[in-house]
Structures are given as C-alpha cells and as structure tokens.
Design a protein around this nucleic acid. Structure first.
Length: 812
RNA sequence: GCGAGAGUGGCGGAAUCGGCAGACGCGCCAGAUUUAGGAUCUGGUGGGCAACCGUAGGGGUUCAAGUCCCCUCUCUCGCACCA
C-alpha cells in the first residue's frame, strides 16, 4: 500500500470538490439552514497563520453542521478599501486598485489551499463598484432617515504632508507625523456623521443574542449609559451653561465650574486679564491626544477664565475654569465641580486652592483623606431643604425640584459618540452627495449610483481629499436645478463596507431594487454563527448591530440582530511567545507548512494545539505530532492485516464498540461547544485503542463500524484525508455529505466502574463495582475493605457518603 | 486608575454538576528495528527514598475545592480623569 501523500490527495480533492460544486450553497427549503460566517480578511498581502487559526475551526464547525443535516452557507470575501492600499501605493507607486486586486488573487489561492468549504461563487470584494454602489445606497437611506448629518470635527493633520492622519500614523509622545516627523496639529473639518447614538438604548439590549459575556461587557462599557440630571448655570454676564451630572444630590457642594478648553463659550466669557493665559492653555490642550489628556498619571492643569457663574440651587457665585480633563466630546463639555465628592475635582481644587465643601456625610466612620464618592450611601448635609436625606433618595427629590424650578431636568447620558464616517482619502467609497450653490446639499439620485471612484485620481498627499483635485469627478451638475455643482470629495470609513457584508453574500453585486435578493434573505438570514477576533468588540460589532437595526427600520430585514451567536478565537504568537512580525523574524508562513506537511496537518494542529479562544505560541514540534497522527490514521484505517481471523474475544468487541460510541458523543459535544482541542484528542484516543485491537478484531463488523465512524468524525477537521480514505474504502462520494454519526447511550455505557474509597477525604483504596450497584451494598463493601479497617483502627464511623459511580467517603 | 479574563507537570493543555488532578499531544528516558543517524514501533514519565506533598500565594465554606467565597501577587486584553 502507498504511503499518505498529503499534497497529492489535497490537490486532487480540491479540484474534484470544485468540479462537482460540493460547496455551493443553494437554497433548499427541505432543509434547515445554517449561516456560518467568519470575519473577512483585509487583503494586505499574504495569508497569515492567524487567518488560518480563525478560519479553520470555523470551517470544521460549518462542516459538522452540514453533516448534521443543515444546509450550510459559509462564504468568504475581502474587505478591500482602506489605508494600507494607499500607503503601499505611495511607497511603491502601484495604484491601490492594482495592489489590492493582486493581493486578493494571491490570498484567494492561499485560502483555497486550506480546503475550506467556502462557496467561492458568493465571494464579495468591497472595493468593486457593484459592491460599493450599495454602500452608497445605504448612505442615502441613512440620510433620508435623518441618520446622516454634517458637523465640524477635529482631525489630526500634518502641516508638512498636508494630509489628514489616522491615529496609527501619529507617532511618539510629541505626536509627530510618521512620514515627515512634523508635529501634528488639529484641524476642524466639516464631516459626515451617522447618528448611532439614536440607537444607544437598544444597543444595550443583548437579550436576543448569544455572545460572549466579555464582548457584551465591553460593548456596555463602550456605550456607557449614565443617569442623572442636566442643570443650567447662568453666567454673571447672562450666558447659560448646561452641565450633566450623575450626582444632583451634591449640587450644594459645587464650588466651581470647569469647561472643556474647546467649549464655544470660553471665548465669550473670558475676561480681559485672563485672555492671554486662556489662549495659551487652549493651544496647548489642542496639541495633546485624547489619551494624553485623559492620563491619570498627569497632574491636573487648568486656568481661570475670570468669569463667575451662579449655582442655581443656592445662588452662590462660583468661579469658572477651563481644564483639559473635561472633554468636549462627553456630556455637555462642561461640569460642575464638587471637590468633596469627586477625586478629580478634589485634586484640581487642592492644586488651585479652591473651596472644598462637604455636602454628603458618610454613615459610620468616613475616610477623610479621600473624597467620599460612594453614590449609594451617606446623608446630605449643608444642602438647604434636602439636608438630612439619604443621598440616593435625595438625588431623586433634587431632580424633581430642579424640574419644578425650571433650572434642570432628568437626563441620560451616553459615552457613545456619533459615528464619524468621513475620510479625507482616495481609497474608499465616495460619499454620494452633491453641493449646489443654489440648492445646497443634494443627495445623488439612486439611479445615478454608483458614484464611481475615478481610477486616475492623484492619490498622493495633497492637503485635501484627493478627489478634490480630480476635475472630472469634482465638477458635476446639480440633480435638482441642473446648474453647475460639486461633489463631496470625502470617502466613507471602511467600517461601513463591513457593516453589511453578511447581506452582500446573499447575492453578490446584486442588480435589483434593493441591496440583496429578498428571497435569499428570507431563507438564509440572520447569521447563525459568527466567528472572529475579540479586537472588533467595540467598533465593527457595534456598527453592524446598528446597521441591522436601521435596515430593520427601513423594512429590509425583519429581525433585530445580525448575528445570533458569536465566538472569538485567540491569537497565535511566534515561537518566542511574542507577537508575530516581520521585524522580529518570527512569522510562521502557512504556505510553507502546507508544502511541508499538507493542509490537513496544519488544520489538525491549529485545532489541537490551544484552547481556541485563548491561542498561544506556535510550536514547530507540536505540529510534527499531528503529522504523525495523520500518518498513523492512514495506516490504521487502510492497511490490511495479513492474518486476520482466529478466536474473536467478545469482551474486546464490546470495548471497541463502547469506545466508538463514546467518541461520537464526545466529538459531537466538543464541536458544538467550540472545544476543538478535545475533539481532536478524542480522535487520538480512539485511534490509540483501535491500534491495539486491530489485529484481533480486523475481521469483525465492529471493526468496520469503527473505521467508518472514524472517517466520518475526522471529516470536519481533515476534509481531504477523510475524503481519500472514504473513497478507498469504496464508499460513495462525498464523505462530507454523509450524516454525522449518532451514538447509542447503551453501547457507550460502561458496565463497571472503578470508585475511590476515601477516609476523611483522603484516598485510601479503590474498587471496581458494577454500574448501578445498590448504595447499601457499596457502602458495606467499602467499609469491609482491609485498607479501610486498618486506617480506621477501631475509630467509630460517623458518616458514609456515596457519590454513585465516583466515590465513597467515610467520615470518622 | 477602571473594567474583563487568565495563572494547573519541563511545554501546549485536560478535568460537563463541588467528587480519582494531569486526558491527549510535545519533550524526555528505556527498549525494538537500523551499519550509523533519521524515521518508525513498544513501554515509561508531576515531585519525593518513603510517609506524604502537589492546580500563583494566604485565609474561609464543605464529608469533599483546580472548581465556591474573601484577601494578596503576577500576566494578558479592553477602556482611558466619563462628570
């Protein structure tokens, strides 16, 4: 018999699967559907082992579902717009389109070597007009619904390169441009936003989805709901400033106010002697990143504006300061400061000698070194009519009182900000808007989509959106008045493209009236199982939930959540336990591994080596073990036994059959629960037993059953090897369309079990008893054991505990 | 600083419900085969001579704790003074 030759087998079956359309997913009303989705890659160059680690187990599970009788859709595509393509273009003079499509071609070939059940006829590439036409269509729908709007927002900007910078392009503590090292500045640009905050409340509801607790928690924190009140302070000069507070019960302790340096009122209220200091401080604050401004390490800084506001609850004059620890993007960009009951305000008050007035008294011994900040205990003091009330109760009463007096109201605040979708980039989907000097902002009519990205644009850094310099693109006519007009030249954030890609797979580059085929949608949606990295917990995974809720409100889908179940995989590190990177030289290339061991070995090792959700360091010895395992499986299942026959030991037959059924049970359970490492381990255990009994049992039916079952259980993990063995066993093509084996509890059940005998919790003896032995008998038998008697040494037995099938514990 | 997760042999990891700690694999050791090496196969492998001791450390609950509770330490991830 020939040896296991992985490459030959893999190429052969990949070709055959393609020819026979094995992995085509077509609607079949007679079968339950299962939409398995794994995050689509960015076409950055070569497929990385991390892609394999994410996709292979997802594929194995999709295959398992198919064998369980589901009609499975498992598509693949490319998230193809984005910054790296532009960077590569600038660096090497290749057009982003050429660079991207070249990478896609290479990665598609690499993906195919994985042997996954991707339906390639449903592939989508987000930078093609047939795709981004619909991304633009969504923009228009959002605009119609009032969910897209424009406002001024700051961007990081390099004055030297004259270009907007992404956060990853700003380096170092002095925040310089990665290319020319010039310190970056902030620039205010008019940009498009999506009103995701309209959906903040609904996005906090996770009751309809089975997502990891970790992700749910992260999203909840990201959305960051807090309840309290908005209170209006009037300046001495008449202007009003509204603050948000979660602690209206501390209003009587507000001894000063702080505005964000960018607050629009700062200019107006600052009095003459303080103008210089305020201007300097604002300039300095502008240079810092949000992360720097919010660093706890940093000492609090701020300057006085010279202005005073009136605290509406007691009519007292409080000074108004500006400080960079107050953010324009959160709340109202202004706070009332209560130093006695807030750590930041306390630090600030101490530094600048501002009044600290206690208005909540701790119940019992308070720690007066630190401000007392617990919102759920303490009693209000020095608080006018509310003095003496418990803080929690007082909070409610104060809100009612503020509303009655007309100086405040109950309010909810979210940390979540509206989604900035404008990018001053070339390589993205153009925002389909036209600016007309007569008609103003005019959306591009639907029948003029897509707004094509011109191929000959100058995408080198020019200081503006590159499309601004493309006359043919820029100059257009107004769809309303037919007069001369200009197009919007910003492109859309690529997170938009990936917010709806799960729907694009239904009917790639659809040409109907809506973005995807309604019949396909009715059958396949929503996504049943989503898999991908946890790093997307707060951006992509919130955006796509938001998108789906808007799609629902547009009547395009009839469910609330895009993905019913989500599981995250971990990260594979280099053999040195460091993140893989070219500069470290610790990158593991899947192509080389496939060349050396074959795809099935790589697949098996990626499933076996780590707990999937954790990941860990690559081990080049570990993969050898999996390679050996597959060679042994080949010999075990295919090599004939020279002299079978002879006496057949019935006990052995029973044991083999039991192990087979136990393995089916274990493998099924593990695949259902994404426990891929133990699934592979259970196959190894079965193969170890089969190796032991092969010679004796070769001629039996039980052996045949074991062989056949083994191949079926192996199929999700090692699809090529399983297919080859299946064919060599003379079975009908394809192993992947067979039914997943079903175990028989009776056959899987053990007849006897070894139980442990403990005395006072320490193991002293063991005995083998029949399963289901009567409790009284077991206890008696255990007590009668000589080892037990010796140990007890005449002491009276107080209690005997029997855990069926596990142990007897004698308490003496 | 806040939030989440993790810490088990030399290594990756296993241990469905609180009930035999270390499944499976790597590595290592011994043997077989081989001129030798490699490859392959078979057996062994937490520590300790033992009694016993062992799941980051300390305490607790329980007949019984890797698992539950409290405290401490370390690491990873996320968020960054969130009013």
């Amino acid at each position: 018999m020939d040896r296991y030759h992985s490459r030959k087998i893999e190429q052969h079956w990949q070709k055959k699967w393609e020819e026979t359309g094995l992995n085509r997913a077509v609607r079949r009303p007679d079968r339950p559907k299962h939409y398995a989705l794994t995050m689509l890659p960015y076409p950055s160059g070569d497929l990385h082992i991390g892609h394999w680690y994410a996709m292979v187990p997802s594929d194995a599970r999709a295959r398992f579902m198919r064998m369980k009788g589901y009609n499975v859709l498992f598509p693949m595509g490319f998230d193809a717009f984005g910054l790296p393509a532009e960077n590569a273009a600038i660096k090497r003079g290749i057009h982003p389109h050429v660079w991207t499509m070249g990478n896609i071609e290479r990665m598609r070939r690499q993906l195919k070597s994985m042997g996954a059940m991707f339906d390639w006829e449903r592939e989508i590439i987000s930078c093609l007009p047939g795709y981004y036409k619909w991304t633009q269509w969504f923009f228009l729908k959002f605009y119609e619904k009032g969910l897209a709007y424009k406002k001024l927002a700051p961007v990081d900007y390099c004055p030297q390169c004259r270009t907007t910078l992404a956060r990853e392009q700003v380096w170092g503590e002095d925040r310089h441009c990665e290319r020319c090292k010039t310190p970056v500045i902030k620039k205010e640009l008019s940009q498009w936003f999506f009103r995701i905050t309209d959906y903040a409340e609904e996005l906090l509801d996770f009751s309809k989805i089975d997502w990891p607790e970790r992700v749910v928690t992260m999203q909840k924190n990201w959305i960051g709901k807090s309840e309290g009140a908005e209170v209006t302070f009037r300046m001495e000069t008449g202007e009003e400033v509204t603050v948000f507070t979660t602690r209206p019960d501390t209003l009587w302790g507000a001894t000063f106010m702080v505005l964000a340096p960018e607050h629009p009122l700062v200019e107006k209220i600052t009095t003459e002697p303080y103008k210089g200091a305020v201007r300097d401080y604002r300039k300095q604050a502008e240079r810092q990143s949000e992360i720097e401004r919010l660093s706890t390490e940093k000492e609090k800084t701020g300057v006085f504006t010279g202005a005073y506001a009136i605290n509406p609850v007691n009519g007292e004059k409080v000074p108004v300061w500006i400080a960079d620890y107050v953010m324009m993007g959160y709340g109202t960009g202004a706070i009332m400061a209560v130093p006695a009951h807030d750590e930041r305000d306390m630090a600030f008050a101490k530094k600048y000698n501002l009044e600290i007035r206690e208005v909540i008294q701790p119940v019992g011994a308070g720690d007066y070194e630190k401000p007392f900040t617990d919102p759920n205990s303490g009693v209000m003091v020095n608080s006018g009519p509310f003095t003496g009330l418990p803080a929690a109760e007082g909070r409610e009463k104060v809100i009612a009182w503020l509303e009655e007096k007309g100086v405040g109201k109950r309010a909810v605040n979210y940390r979540l900000r509206d989604w900035l979708i404008s990018r001053q980039r070339y390589w993205g989907a153009p925002i389909p808007v036209i600016y007309c000097p007569e008609c103003g902002t005019v959306p591009v009519p639907y029948d003029q989509l897509p707004v094509l990205l011109p191929e000959d644009a100058e995408f080198l850094p020019t200081g503006e959106s590159p499309l601004k310099y493309h006359e043919a693109f820029l100059k257009t006519t107004c769809p309303r008045c037919q007069g001369p007009a200009e197009r919007e030249t910003d492109t859309m954030d690529t997170f938009l493209c990936s917010s709806w890609y799960q729907y694009a797979y239904l009917s790639p580059y659809y040409e109907g009236e809506v973005p995807f085929d309604p019949e396909e949608a009715a059958y396949w949606l929503p996504v049943d199982q989503y898999t991908g990295g946890v790093e997307h917990a707060c951006m992509h995974l919130i955006y796509t939930r938001f998108f789906t809720k808007v799609l629902r409100d547009l009547g395009l889908v009839n469910f609330d959540e895009p993905m019913l179940s989500l599981r995250n995989q971990g990260i594979i590190l280099g053999e040195d336990s460091e993140k893989m990177s070219k500069s470290r030289g610790n990158v593991i290339a899947p192509d080389e591994l496939v060349e050396k061991y074959g795809a099935d070995t790589v697949r098996a090792y990626l499933m076996f080596g780590w707990r999937w959700e954790l990941g860990g360091a690559w081990d080049s010895k570990g993969i050898e073990g999996c390679h050996r395992f597959l060679h042994r499986v080949w010999e075990l299942l295919l090599a004939p036994v020279s002299e079978p026959g002879g006496e057949i030991p019935e006990e052995q037959v029973k044991n083999l059959r039991r192990k087979v059924h136990q393995t089916i049970r274990k493998a099924t359970h593990d695949l259902e629960n994404f426990s891929f490492n133990t699934y592979i381990a259970s196959l190894m255990e079965l193969s170890n037993l089969m190796t032991k009994v092969k010679k004796e049992l070769y001629a039996t039916e039980a052996w045949q059953e074991a062989v056949e079952t083994f191949v079926l259980l192996l199929a999700p993990a090692c699809p090529h090897l399983a297919e080859e063995i299946w064919a060599r066993l003379g079975r009908e093509y394809s192993v992947h369309e067979q039914s997943w084996p079903v175990w028989d509890e009776k056959l899987a059940a053990e007849e006897t079990v070894e139980i442990v005998i403990q005395v006072n919790g320490k193991i002293k003896d063991r005995m083998v008893i029949p399963v289901g032995a009567e409790e009284g008998w077991v206890k008696e038998t255990a007590l009668a054991r000589t080892a037990v008697a010796e140990f007890l040494n005449g002491r009276p037995v107080r209690k005997v505990i029997y855990v069926p099938g596990r142990l007897v514990n004698i308490v003496a």
